[in-house]
């Protein structure tokens, strides 16, 4: 039950990421076709692509972090007892989940400052500060997901296995 709830909480943004990705593909296609055949490219297509890209990365980051889908190297793991490995993983996720809050704060600050400058994207005039705010929030959720993973590893490992299993593709 709990596993499903957590899984759902991180899946919702993931589905939005899927939607962003699909939109990006369709947008590129229609932009190219419209430009080639009708001389009418979609205005600001590249800018929308950039925003969708940020959307994909930061909406998917919570799942990537919670389900340990970051690329890492388990080279020495075979020589180390499982109990040590577990505490190592608890530690790594906790430490980096906490450390990430510093760039989150720095990013938030610089986003607010950019909002104050009224800086906008070149073609669609979208406030750049808003995009940066969104990214800071995404990074914050990703950091939280790492801390959550650490806590689950420490206190409810079965729950984490259940979440990992549902994320297997």
């Amino acid at each position: 039950m709990m596993a499903r709830a957590i899984r759902l909480a991180v899946s919702l943004p993931l589905w939005l990421a899927a939607l962003a990705l699909f939109s990006m593909m369709v947008l590129t296609f229609f932009d190219v076709v419209a430009r080639s055949m009708m001389d009418a490219p979609i205005p600001g297509a590249a800018e929308i692509t950039e925003i969708l890209l940020a959307g994909i990365v930061f909406l998917a980051l919570p799942v990537t972090s919670l389900c340990d889908r970051h690329i890492s190297v388990d080279l020495i793991d075979t020589f180390i007892p499982d109990a040590v490995l577990r505490w190592r993983d608890i530690g790594v996720n906790l430490v980096f989940g906490v450390l990430l809050w510093w760039p989150v704060a720095a990013g938030w600050k610089s986003a607010i400052r950019t909002l104050g400058y009224n800086e906008v994207t070149l073609y669609l005039r979208i406030p750049v500060g808003f995009i940066m705010l969104f990214i800071s929030v995404g990074l914050a959720v990703g950091a939280t997901a790492m801390i959550l993973r650490s806590l689950l590893l420490a206190f409810r490992p079965q729950l984490l296995h259940a979440i990992d299993a549902t994320s297997a593709t």
């Binding site: 430009r35 001389d39 009418a40 490219p41 205005p43 600001g44 297509a45 590249a46 800018e47 070149l122 073609y123």
Partner: peptide, 19 residues
């Protein structure tokens, strides 16, 4: 590059490509 350059060519009837 946006700004003045883009404004001028758009008024000349060109299609702006953004890269």
């Amino acid at each position: 590059p946006g700004g003045v350059g883009s404004a001028v060519i758009e008024r000349l009837g060109a299609i702006g490509i953004q890269v």
